[in-house]
Amino acid sequence: MNTTWSRFNIVSLVLGFAFLYLPIVLLVVYSFNESRLVTVWAGFSTKWYVSLFNNQPFIDAAWVTIRVGLISATVATVLGTLGALAMTRYTRFRGRLLFSAMIYAPLVMPEVITGLSMLLLFVAIGFDRGIWTMVLAHITFSMCFVAVVVQSRLVTFDRSLEEAAMDLGATPVTTFFRITLPVILPAVVSGWMLAFTLSIDDLVISSFTSGPGATTLPMRIYSQVRLGVTPEINAACTILIAIVAVGVIIASIANKRREVQKARDEQAAARN
């Protein structure tokens, strides 16, 4: 099939990837710009990073973002994994249709609607808005993404492994922790990462559900952007991109290692 990979295909890929990556590259490059103007290059400088680290509101917002991200991603992973188990293991229970609709709907729901409805719930029950209302909102929309990721792994899961464990006398709970969880762990981990990224990136739902004193980094960046483009925001964006990039690279290396290990184990098993 290599012969059919024509020049047209290569050109469209190069142009496509240039379109995808050039804006991000330019953003990163201009965060090191000496000049206050974002679009005029005046030499290399890291002064915007220095000024960013002296900018207390930004630091505070970063801490809020990380805290909300860690808590909500962890709870969302537990709930999403349970949801995926419910969807794949129990094909028949009352209200299953509603359940699957509630799992899939948040994936395509416009964020303004999710944000507004969560806020109105918190107002209706008299819950003071702040970091915790934001955490609850983030858990709710990101658990659905986790559920979909874990579910796709569970569908291909070989259930005879579980049956073997239970035949040998393991309880369903033990079977889950000793057999099922280790097998689906890569999907659970990538679900956690997805939930964490969704949480630290979110602007719209956070703006609706947070209260005074709980400002996240995207909210801070957004209110600055409305005042104009500055190299300091470019620097903040670059740091966010760097955090995510490092996470993705570590995850993919870990994944690769596991695959290599698995292939080796399989070879060893075949030899025996």
Binding site: P23, L26, L27, L240, I241, V244, V248
Partner: peptide, 22 residues
């Protein structure tokens, strides 16, 4: 390579275009 930009913040990717299109 196609999935990677999806991991960077939506807001940042939109913001990047302001500097380009001004």
């Amino acid at each position: 390579l196609v999935i990677l930009p999806f991991w960077t913040s939506f807001l940042i990717r939109v913001y990047a275009w302001i500097g380009i299109l001004k």
